[in-house]
């Protein structure tokens, strides 16, 4: 089932970076994620390229296929159309930016095939 949209995507939500700095969700920059992951001992930023966007099980859901990391592992996620992803160098983007803005007052670009999103993996599973 699609992942419901959590409250921290609401405009004005306070986000704590890895160094303790507080920022509003709408003010986050690509560098904030990169620098936070550099500090983290467990988490690593990966580049996840959008390969496909298909309809989901319900009318307001989409299945997004990503190519993750250097190994280009194929990973599919089903989310609501308003679910925002952070695109490198661009910022928040969703499959239905109008709906994201309507529900969460978060300005969004349209998420498209070829966009490179910020994602996380564990630094090492060993």
């Amino acid at each position: 089932s699609p992942v419901a949209l959590p409250p921290f995507f609401m405009r004005g939500s306070i986000i704590q970076l890895a160094d303790g700095e507080l920022k509003r969700v709408e003010d986050l920059k690509t560098e904030d994620f990169i620098q936070s992951a550099e500090i983290s001992s467990e988490l690593k930023i990966d580049s996840s390229t959008v390969e496909r966007i298909d309809s989901g099980q319900s009318p307001n859901a989409v299945v997004i296929q990503f190519s993750v990391g250097e190994l280009k592992a194929q990973v599919c996620v089903e989310v609501l159309v308003e679910y925002p992803f952070f695109v490198f160098g661009q910022g928040w983007s969703s499959c239905c930016p109008d709906r994201t803005t309507q529900l969460f007052e978060l300005s969004c670009a349209k998420l498209c095939v070829g966009d490179v999103c910020v994602s996380l993996t564990l630094r090492s599973l060993r």
């Binding site: 983290s40 930023i45 999103c117 994602s119 996380l120 993996t121």
Partner: peptide, 19 residues
Amino acid sequence: VPVFPWHSLVPFLAPTQSD
């Protein structure tokens, strides 16, 4: 006011590890 950790905003896309 609730404060959320930065990593909660980012999807955890874990490829299957093959080693």
